[in-house]
Amino acid sequence: MVSGAGPEAGHGGERKGQLFELPPELAIDTDVARRVMVGFIRNQLRQAGFGRALLGLSGGIDSALVAYLVAEAIGPESMLCLLLPYRTSSRESVEHARLVVDNLGCASDIVDISQIVDGYFGRDREIGAGGAAVREAAPLRRGNFMARARMSVLYDVSVVWGGLVVGTGNKTESLIGYTTLFGDSACAFNPIGDLYKSQVRQVAAAIGVPEEIIRKAPSADLWPGQTDEVEAGFTYPELDRLLFWMIDKRRTDDELLNMGFAPAAISRVKRLVAVSEFKRQVPPVAKLGPRTTGVDYLYPRRRPGSARP
């Protein structure tokens, strides 16, 4: 492992002198990556006929990085950050989201989604729209609902803001399916979806995302104390390395074993990737007519005339 050379690296903390772990094979040229992602944001908006963008800011590193990239692409005056906490969301999440907004000087708004979520699941003795039984819903089910509530708010606000919703999911969570379909993965376009978490950290450090956001344990913040790495049973550098060699570099199981990856980790990650394939693709349409979208009707999204006038 090499240490991440963030702008404030070496200022103490638990991982002394090291802001994050970066497996050497995942190290990228952050200037090139930034150039491509910023150009991508600018082009996606321009080609769609939009000058503005918005995103949900969770307080975590992924959405923080996207906020910095969007600000660099179109200027903070053209972007809106929405803070969408639930009543159990950690105070720290909101504080970190505010820190990003303050640093960038962009517009922001806060919409507490508690009423939406509680309105469905109920709260205390109140029975919600989902009926009595739904009060016993597992945290995962509630978490998915929250992600979709946030998506609904973002897309509603996007109309009055006159901007496109920018995606904030990274490659690691997409590949293992650690996303909510039509929830956090819903967006108009996603500039960081081909960056592993370790690479998100590397670019975040280079672009100036505050150190406390880079350093803290990643969490979906769906219930108090939840962290990604505990839930997944992997650290991100381990998982990123395995995914990189398995998928990007096409290593076979035997080759991965010889590289020192644990058999259990290999089989588990392979299963996670396979079982979440549906989350990464557009839903299939039964082929009936002569030309079917996605099958033999193939046009670029940004064909002439596709931009909003």
């Binding site: 094979e25 190290a27 990228i28 040229d29 200037d31 090139v32 990556a33 491509v36």
Partner: peptide
């Protein structure tokens, strides 16, 4: 198309 971003490559690409 530019791809295969990695620090080990000349000009990062």
């Amino acid at each position: 198309p530019g791809r295969d971003l990695a620090a080990i490559h000349e000009v990062g690409l």
